[in-house]
Write a protein that binds this DNA or RNA. Structure first.
Length: 510
RNA sequence: GGCCCGUUGGUCAAUCGGUUAAGACGCCUCCCUUUCACGGAGGAAUGAGGGGUUCGAUUCCCCUACGGGCUACCA
């Protein structure tokens, strides 16, 4: 074990959006770094210019900040989050790729896309539907292994488009120690000669990730399981570049799967199943396509990272609600599961509900205030401070506060008359008429006085208080929900109460 | 097809050879509440199949089945 300070990186590609799997990868990296007093840095995978999406890099940073897991500055790239960008380090990669060629671990390949296609169809058999550029085929291709030295130099000086490919060794077992899976063994003869440097001079992920991880002094390289098959290439690269001693420890996280069916959770699934798959709303600047985010749907950042962390990891204690600090404290890579987990939106909402319940009114207030004002409801802080605790246990999402709180500030537009009308009669109507009169002369306006007045009057008229309580509630809030009616009446005030009863009577009598 | 990784209820999952196989979500019943929730008490529901190893396998090994990932000059 080395004693270097822990440094991990999150390396998203800025191709638009940041879905659940990505955020969880970032989160696990963050938790590991913080647990070991290390640093968590950002590296941007912008190798492929054609797919780079404007604004996506900032969007990623915004998401991480919202989640409370913003990257650290890092010593190698000052600035707010100082991400490494592959696009800015082009020369560096070429230098290392050429070094590999000189050392005999890589070679130039001049095959055109058409020639590659030809090779794939020529070698395609029933048993081998996708032939690769590998030990089996490379000697039949146009590269610096098959061409003479002069021919190669001529092509290079003529600027013939070419790539640099890794030369996989003959018969070699490539061993990789994964912190989650243990030792994984690959045989070199089944791994193909991956392109390291593309014809446009940009590196592929394989070269870039190794060069950058080395430059950034990354100690632990954690990523999704989809990278496991190419890990042997990376291990070899660390060796061939002469950096074996600095090779990070590896871990490959399980995938987050679709709730139904199977396969990786994708952007499409959100639309299909009605839940967000991105941390925050994302609008693709090119297509204009919009994908919904957890934030805008009313998730609390603490709940969001809590539910993500527990999707594939737990500390074995049965505890499910963790603050960020607790997650840092309890987290361990070794306890991350090997198998992928299906995403369950119902459980996700449960986490948020739990967080809303334990969240203080002060924390909730600004969010609720924003929600209400975006619906043209302007509520005083004083009123919010008393009504939020009254209603928060009914809210799974922050957005649920709108229906739960609205009636405290504005008269209900629609009343659930269907809940009242079947049992509505003249006797009840008479009760409310006299209740209005009684209330007008009520000297003090508090819960006890209203309740007492209501109940005594009901009894005097031979009605069970319960029979008139539901109509009263529907008049005040519009439906069959909310906290105690008399408390609501008290909070909205005498005038509003009288006004709503009046309107209720009209509607119930129609 | 090949390579790699997986497989405990519908879902998330505990168990690191011996348990009546936890707990949570969801679902159902009841209590509390003359609303909706919260809370409380219960219930139905799980070790893919087959071989080993062992006094004893959910747990270790092998095979099969199934699922997933990768198999691009994408990440």
């Amino acid at each position: 074990m080395s004693h270097k300070p822990v440094r991990v990186r999150f390396a998203p590609s800025p191709t638009g959006g940041l879905h659940l799997g990505g955020v969880r990868t970032a989160l696990y990296n963050y938790l590991f770094a913080k647990k070991h007093n290390g640093t968590f840095v950002l590296r941007i995978e912008d190798t492929d210019q054609t797919r780079y999406v404007q604004g996506a890099e900032q969007y990623i940073i915004d998401c991480l900040e919202w989640c409370g897991i913003a990257p650290d500055e890092g010593p190698h790239r000052p600035g707010k989050f100082g991400p490494y960008r592959q696009s800015e380090r082009k020369d560096m990669y070429r230098k290392f790729a050429e070094q590999l060629v000189r050392d005999g671990h890589a070679y130039y390949a001049f095959d055109t896309p058409e020639e590659l296609e030809k090779m794939r169809t020529a070698f395609k058999t029933e048993n081998n539907p996708s032939p690769q550029y590998s030990q089996a085929t490379r000697m039949k291709m146009c590269n610096s292994l098959t061409l003479s030295k002069e021919e190669v130099e001529k092509k290079l000086s003529d600027n013939v488009p070419h790539v640099i490919r890794i030369k996989m060794p003959d018969q070699q077992e490539i061993r990789l120690n994964d912190m989650i899976r243990g030792e994984v063994v690959f045989h070199s003869h089944v791994v193909d000669d991956k392109v390291l440097l593309k014809a446009d001079g940009m590196p592929t992920y394989h070269l870039a990730v190794v060069v950058d991880d080395h430059a950034m002094e990354i100690t632990h390289a954690f990523r999704g399981e989809e990278w496991l098959p190419s890990a042997p290439v990376h291990v070899l690269l660390w060796q061939y570049l002469g950096w074996s001693d600095d090779m990070p420890q590896w871990a490959h996280f399980p995938l987050i799967l679709k709730p139904d069916g199977q396969g990786k959770l994708s952007k499409r699934d959100g639309d299909r199943l009605g839940f967000p798959v991105f941390a925050m709303d994302w609008t693709d600047p090119q297509s204009g396509e919009r994908t919904n985010g957890f934030k805008e749907m009313g998730f609390l950042p603490d709940a969001f990272i809590n539910l993500l962390a527990l999707l594939g990891w737990n500390d074995g204690s049965g505890q499910e609600i963790f603050s960020k600090e607790e997650l840092v404290q309890h987290f361990s890579v070794e306890r991350i599961h090997k198998a992928g987990a299906k995403f369950d939106f119902e459980k996700a909402k449960w986490y948020n509900h739990e967080w809303i319940k334990i969240c203080s009114t002060d924390m909730l207030l600004p969010m609720v205030e924003d929600l209400l004002s975006s619906h043209q409801i302007h509520a005083s802080h004083k009123m919010l401070q008393t009504t939020i605790p009254l209603t928060k246990e009914r809210c799974h999402l922050i957005n649920d506060f709108l229906p739960q709180l609205k009636y405290f500030f504005v008269d209900p537009v629609e009343l659930d008359t269907a809940a009242v009308k079947p049992k509505w009669d003249e006797k009840k109507e008479a009760f409310f008429q006299s209740f209005v009169n009684e209330m007008k002369s009520l000297s003090s306006w508090n819960i006890e006085a209203i309740e007492q007045c209501f109940k005594e009057l009901a009894q005097a008229q031979g009605l069970k208080p319960g029979d008139v309580q539901l109509p009263f509630r529907v008049m005040l809030v519009g439906g069959k929900f909310g906290p105690a009616v008399f408390e609501i009446a008290q909070l909205i005030g005498k005038d509003a109460t009288l006004k709503r009863i009046d309107r209720g009577l009209q509607l119930f009598n129609q």
